[in-house]
Design a protein around this nucleic acid. Structure first.
Lengths: 390, 390
DNA sequence: AAAACTATCGGGAACGTTTGCGGATACGTT
DNA sequence: AACGTATCCGCAAACGTTCCCGATAGTTTT
């Protein structure tokens, strides 16, 4: 027999449909709806899984004080007696209390966490930037959560969304090669969440940026090749939607023009520089009828790929082909001949971005320059030293 | 004139001390204490900074429905009419609503986030593991937050604490060279939070581990040296509190014993292998009266450091000195002669750890093997090829 | 002895969600 | 009509903190 859960009557009960698969009843006498809940044991066991973590409330209760007192004791607040604080602290270790940062974050609406999105981890460049940023941020008491967009615009957007949803206090990001739309970044501006771009930056988002002097670096690299007697210099560049690529192309052209070299469009390739692509482009360049006598590549891995292909084809480096890369990867020292390349101050870049994001967080109207341009260094090695430099 | 905030009387007010720097009053007639709060404008401006993010409540209010309805609409819950859902969804884009993951996490007491702590990012090893883990986790809808312990036990502990406080759903960790105490990890077991160790593991924590076959790899490496005619083989190992180091030492000894080579303790060095230390140890080994004719180093950077020092000293490789490293860093291919080394399946290691942690999360009693041992591969190059291998 | 001050502590709202359960209505079916 | 069924929605309690306001007792100053 079904009893009304309110008036405990039995005879005035009538069925009243189903709700979520469970029989529904209506007690006519007290006009009360209810469902007869024979708890599904499987569901119960599922619930059981949620373990109880000791909370501030547990401590308060076991000590006979209020939550606020415990909270104060934990935060060295002034309004607390040494004895109570001591008692709380003891209870904390005894009950193995671990504060719930989620609740803290919710009420403070800050997370003490900085997000960082990098497009790839294959090359040592981004890991090194991370090391630099990590150093500054942990020192300032911030956590750093890192995501990897994997050179995919889609992933970048979803990463940014996740960061936003998790209410990070600031975002440091370097764009993917695909990124052409910047709505997902402008959201941060709208929300007033500090944002810094580095390395792979764009003009469309009006936030501080940290980059290297790509134009000059590129100019110097190409100039260096020219001064070493190379004539037909090809440029293996990145995708042109990246400012980095544009700047490096500009530097290349500027140097070529300065020394009266003709700029030939079939000597300039812009594209996504995966290792595979690098092989294809290298093949193309090295098989040209008017084969270039030097190549300035946008990263070291492409440059090395080309060096290897040249060796296969019996083209001697640096006599028949000069090669300059970009980034100074560890392997560039050891390849024979050593790869001339542009060293980037990765650690400093990381430190600067971290430093800036902290400034933006600390003061609403921090007056940051719109851009910081870090100095690179041309590391001359054998791959471009036709005129024996060392 | 001061009015009582309750009874609005004026004459029965008396001063009653200060509270936190503000004048306190007592209304005699209604026996009510209060402070006269002329809000400090500077504090107000500080408050103002907290921007309002549109919440579910905003949407509910502007639509004239309840919070629960909005919540249901956002989660494709059954109890919602298509029209209401549509209306909510429109409002969402209109008001630019972004769910607050913090609140969600708090009520669900899960974060959909996996933590990963790695000791360093200098070598490509850990970044590569991260790539693998990242791939699996994002695919499964989890976020990955990465911390770097910087080879410091202290930092590792504080990282683990932060992870715990942030209520991650699982932790993947590789220990620092310093880590000898494991309390910070046992906490996870106590709390029932899934934990996986990889690479730098230890016996003292009873959770699944993912490693490579260090013993065999080491054995093969040393055996390879012996078969190439090297006699006095030194071992440059890592700190012995790491199982990795112990295993590799064991493999070294086993191979030496198998071929009847005497194991001399002054030929075995165990220590933290920073680049600086590697130079010191290398100096020591190469200056020994009974200089080793081969060195098996625990990582590639040390091995390369030694190769460079040997070159400086005019010791020819591989004729006078054989060198074998560990990890197959990118540069190891290019150094001359190429460095013989042990290639580790980094991506697979990352994928496996991620896969396992997901299994642990999904089912309370997932039966995982206590250890997975991934296969390595000995990459033979010139640095050990006295008997021209290629 | 009133007034002012100090040192502690508790109550309870707020942070933004989810969700179990009750209530209401519309639409069938006897 | 009377009843059964299905659909949709709102209420309110969590989740675990922080912190603003009081409240109280004791001490010191005037």
């Amino acid at each position: 027999m079904i009893k009304c859960v309110k008036c405990e009557q039995v005879d005035s009960i009538m069925k009243a449909g189903y709700v979520r698969g469970r029989q529904r009843y209506l007690c006519k006498s007290c006009n009360y709806y209810f469902t007869h809940s024979e708890k599904d044991p499987s569901i119960l066991s599922l619930q059981k899984r949620k373990r109880h973590q000791t909370t501030i409330i547990d401590i308060a209760r076991s000590l006979g004080v209020s939550n606020s007192t415990v909270s104060r004791a934990l935060h060295d607040h002034a309004d607390i007696s040494p004895e109570t604080r001591q008692a709380v602290l003891e209870k904390v270790t005894q009950l193995d209390y671990q504060p719930n940062q989620l609740a803290y974050n919710l009420v403070k609406s800050r997370t003490n966490t900085i997000g960082l999105i990098a497009p790839e981890f294959q090359n040592p460049f981004f890991p090194n930037v991370i090391i630099g940023a990590h150093e500054i941020l942990t020192q300032a008491g911030y956590n750093l959560t890192i995501m990897q967009s994997n050179e995919s615009y889609q992933v970048e957007v979803s990463n940014a969304k996740a960061m936003l949803a998790n209410r990070i206090d600031g975002l440091i990001i370097s764009l993917t090669q695909e990124t052409n739309n910047f709505e997902h970044l402008n959201v941060f501006a709208k929300r007033g969440i500090p944002l810094i771009l580095f390395n792979r930056v764009c003009k469309q988002v009006d936030v501080p940026k940290v980059v290297v002097n790509d134009f000059e670096a590129s100019f110097q690299a190409v100039e260096h090749l020219i001064l070493n007697g190379y004539e037909r210099i090809a440029h293996l560049g990145g995708p042109l939607n990246l400012l980095v690529s544009q700047e490096r192309l500009r530097g290349y052209k500027a140097a070529m023009e300065k020394y009266g070299k003709t700029i030939e469009s079939h000597m300039i390739i812009q594209g996504m520089l995966t290792q595979q692509k690098a092989r294809i482009y290298g093949q193309y360049l090295l098989d040209l009828a008017d084969r270039p006598d030097a190549i300035f590549a946008v990263n070291d891995s492409s440059a090395i790929e080309i060096m290897l292909m040249a060796k296969e084809k019996g083209i001697s480096i640096p006599d028949e082909l000069g090669v300059v890369g970009f980034s100074d990867n560890p392997e560039s020292v050891y390849i024979g001949p050593g790869l001339t390349t542009v060293r980037q101050p990765t650690l400093e870049m990381g430190r600067t971005t971290a430093d800036w994001i902290l400034q933006l967080i600390d003061s609403d109207d921090a007056e940051l320059p719109e851009k910081k341009i870090l100095k690179t260094e041309l590391i001359v090695r054998g791959s471009s030293a036709r005129k024996k430099v060392f």
